[in-house]
Design a protein around this nucleic acid. Structure first.
Lengths: 205, 205
DNA sequence: TTTTCGCTATGACATCTGTCACTGTTTTTG
DNA sequence: CAAAAACAGTGACAGATGTCATAGCGAAAA
């Protein structure tokens, strides 16, 4: 029987998932936490075979937990990240911080149980759908904006006009126009609206 | 016994929640769907007392389902939106489209069951935490766009120029300009970029 | 040191954008 | 039916937007 610490802020999701896992004959959710701090407390008090960790949480999020464990002397259980597609940007950081694998919340139950077994056995679990996505993002030519350009882009995605941006950043309107022009070129788009859309898509803002 | 259709894309969450609800002695999850289209299919085939509807889904999202039901002659069950704090911007649209209430996914189980009973009894359920947030955001009164305006707005949020939109929708550029002008007025913004941002924020696209 | 790069700035230019007024047709609604 | 919308269009206009060439300044890199 694999003892498991489940860390997830949404009550319904946590209870539901715990229930499902407990119905299996190999996994037993023996600890639950609804944020990172609680998780760390639970780890203080007893040992687990594995920790299922959500990324987005109040108080202390998934990355926070991983950081805390790295700086701690205590020997933590292997960690499987359970996250949504929307939050997958932080996965690279999570893996760098010592997580042993990641799966999407919309994974099938059977597959999740299999993943947990793999993690406990010391192997890594990288769900293909996510890996593909991350690789594709990395392959996509990285857009390098200067500090000023980033500022202007932020203003753009707040819907500001050139004149307004100029006032905000204490520049002439002409200067801002130049920056905008460079941003459009770097993002390979034709106008500010497309720039904002692309920036949102790429998570630049 | 209340028969319930549960619409939620994340498999684990859906199964877990169904399980929890079925453990109660008043609610029975008799249908499940992992996207809006499946939900509509299920509604075709049989009746339910209530539908629990997630907002963010692939294929056809929550708003899409509500729109489809509004344009349909069929008598749909009352709908309770179950969503996350992050997606709550679209709730105003959802309510305008006929949803009967909304709760957060991190609601307590007891409270959720109580909410479902209220909905089935014909009352509305507006979870205070969300209502407060929305009021604080001073969400403007429901924005009513015409069909054509919606089409143009969609084009706008794809980053199209007026000329491109005109070609796409088979209109003169002047006509498109007029439509854009009306959209800006209705959204109470100054230019197309702000319109796109607001449209995204309000879930109009 | 020389070069490169980021930032600032200006002026000119073509084009795009949004507003307004006004004219119609068609469809919906009271 | 009559009024009200939605839809399509035109022409004119002011202002916003984006491009380009050019140039000075300071800091960092070669």
């Amino acid at each position: 029987m694999i003892s498991c610490l489940l860390v997830e802020d949404q009550t319904l999701v946590r209870l539901g998932l715990a229930n499902l896992l407990n119905l299996s004959d190999v996994i037993c959710v023996e600890g639950q936490a609804e944020n990172g701090e609680e998780a760390l407390n639970q780890l203080e008090q007893r040992d687990f075979d594995v920790m299922l960790l959500d990324m987005r949480m109040p108080v202390l999020d998934g990355l926070g937990v991983l950081r805390a464990l790295q700086n701690s002397t205590k020997c933590a259980p292997p960690i499987l990240i359970i996250t949504t597609f929307e939050d997958c940007e932080v996965l690279v950081s999570a893996m760098a911080l010592g997580a042993k694998g990641y799966v999407l919340k919309n994974i099938e139950l059977e597959e999740l149980i299999e993943s947990i077994k793999q993690i406990v056995a010391g192997r890594k679990v990288l769900q293909p759908a996510l890996t593909d996505y991350l690789l594709q993002k990395q392959i996509s030519p990285q857009i390098e904006l200067t500090e000023k350009e980033r500022q202007v882009l932020t203003c753009l995605s707040l819907g500001m006009a050139n004149k307004t941006i100029a006032r905000n950043l204490h520049n002439s309107e002409g200067t801002i126009r130049n920056h905008v022009s460079h941003i459009l070129a770097k993002l390979e788009v034709q106008d500010r609206t497309q720039a904002v859309l692309k920036a949102i898509e790429l998570g630049l803002v």
